[in-house]
Design a protein around this nucleic acid. Structure first.
Lengths: 102, 102
DNA sequence: CGGCTACCTTGCGATTTGCAAGCGTGAGTC
DNA sequence: GACTCACGCTTGCAAATCGCAAGGTAGCCG
């Protein structure tokens, strides 16, 4: 998996390097608004992300400190994903995007 | 140039279908904050977008009603791009992204 | 006209995507 | 323990997209 080089110091460009694609923010949306937090639940969202892309994006988001993975203590097969504080801070971005489209 | 199929009714997904890539919002940023409005100026921004990608993204943004192209009356070679109202409405999205990265 | 500039377009190799199938481990059942 | 399924990935491979470089067309400038 190629690591994105930082293209410029512009904060907007930095943000886009981290989640400037058609899938990353949908995962954050699911975590914030749709109560989805497992691999399977993300994969079953309406937009039908492919599982390899999903695994890649979850890895990147984790690497960027936006989400955290934890084993489910109740079921060792499950991995529960959760937003970090940095991830929660993306809520206004998603909110503005939703407002714009509406 | 493939037209994106609408993947779901979610307003966030709709937004991402239109500008969910690493370049589209940088063009909007240039128009909003950097006083850039011609092809050459966009191409010379720090992030160094390739010219074929730039032409493609400008076409998509125009198709989405986010930017408008006009011939420069003073110089027939130049094409001046400008944001539509719909394009200006993206300012809060970019602002939140910049705040998040900072 | 001749040279220059602005805006694209084309060719093409490299990367990324998307679909499907498969794998490994843990849970539940007997 | 053996058997079966569920979950979270990984792999293979064709197709689409990207990015670099080069070319092409039309307008300006002398």
């Amino acid at each position: 998996m190629a690591r994105e080089p930082r293209r410029s110091g512009c904060p907007i460009a930095i943000s886009l390097d981290l989640f400037g694609d058609r899938w990353s923010l949908l995962i954050v949306r699911d975590l914030l608004f749709a109560d989805r937090c497992t691999f399977k639940e993300f994969a079953e969202a309406d937009e039908r992300i492919a599982t390899n892309i999903l695994a890649d994006r979850l890895g990147r988001l984790e690497g960027a400190g936006i989400v955290e993975r934890r084993a489910d203590p109740a079921d060792g097969r499950k991995v529960v994903y959760a937003l970090t504080d940095k991830g929660f801070d993306l809520a206004p971005v998603l909110l503005e995007m939703a407002l714009w489209a509406a």
